[in-house]
């Protein structure tokens, strides 16, 4: 069923303010990975170690936005990917990192670096190499247009498989009540 003539779908993936759990779940499709690789090739991804993505068909983004760098990466994905997918609870709702949203960021930095014993000599790190944290963690759709959402923490391997195979087959991905899980 493999048609070597057929152009492969180019996919980029990344994890922003996430835990790579969604990526692990993608690896959990196990031997179906081989089938997948017959149809897709990976651009920027932790799986390839490509640092910046070029034009892609699909971008899978795990994690929400907690700092300036997350915003830059997300924008790079949005710019280069025809279809952008928010993968997992953090990308969809902010998730676990967003549970800091009721805390004042200034208080957090003060407590971690100044009040408490820290590795940074009582100073808040200010190296320009470090991305600055946003005052709140946000889901992806608040900053760029997102085409599809896959909830779940993480979405199961079957969920990701169903989504990707629908997409590859040119169908609108539908998960149904069984695979639509928020936890």
């Amino acid at each position: 069923m493999t048609n070597p003539e057929q152009k492969k779908i180019r996919v980029a993936t990344t994890s922003l303010a996430g835990c790579f759990g969604c990526h692990m779940s993608l690896l959990d499709i196990d031997e179906r990975l081989f089938t997948l690789l017959e149809h897709v090739e990976f651009d920027r991804s932790p799986l390839t170690d490509i640092k910046h993505c070029g034009p892609c068909d699909v971008g899978l983004v795990e994690g929400g936005l907690c700092n300036a760098e997350n915003v830059h990466v997300l924008r790079e994905f949005r710019k280069n990917c025809k279809i952008l997918v928010a993968v997992g609870a953090c990308a969809v709702t902010g998730g676990l990192p967003a549970q800091r949203n009721h805390l004042d960021l200034a208080d957090c930095l003060q407590e971690v670096y100044v009040t408490e014993v820290s590795l940074h000599n009582g100073l808040i790190p200010n190296d320009p190499e470090l991305p600055l944290p946003l005052d709140k963690v946000h889901p992806l759709h608040e900053v760029v247009k997102v085409d599809y959402f896959i909830p779940g923490c993480p979405p199961s391997a079957d969920t990701l498989w169903k989504f990707l195979t629908d997409l590859l087959a040119g169908r609108t991905p539908t998960l149904g009540v069984e695979l639509t899980r928020y936890d």
Partner: peptide
């Protein structure tokens, strides 16, 4: 609503209703 860390997950009517209706995202700003 952070389902992954909620004890009510799986017994929650809001969550169950969302998945039954096919809600994939809150869509709006939080």
């Amino acid at each position: 609503h952070f389902c992954p860390s909620c004890e009510k997950s799986g017994n929650c009517e809001l969550q169950a209703l969302g998945s039954d209706l096919g809600v994939m995202t809150a869509g709006f700003r939080h």
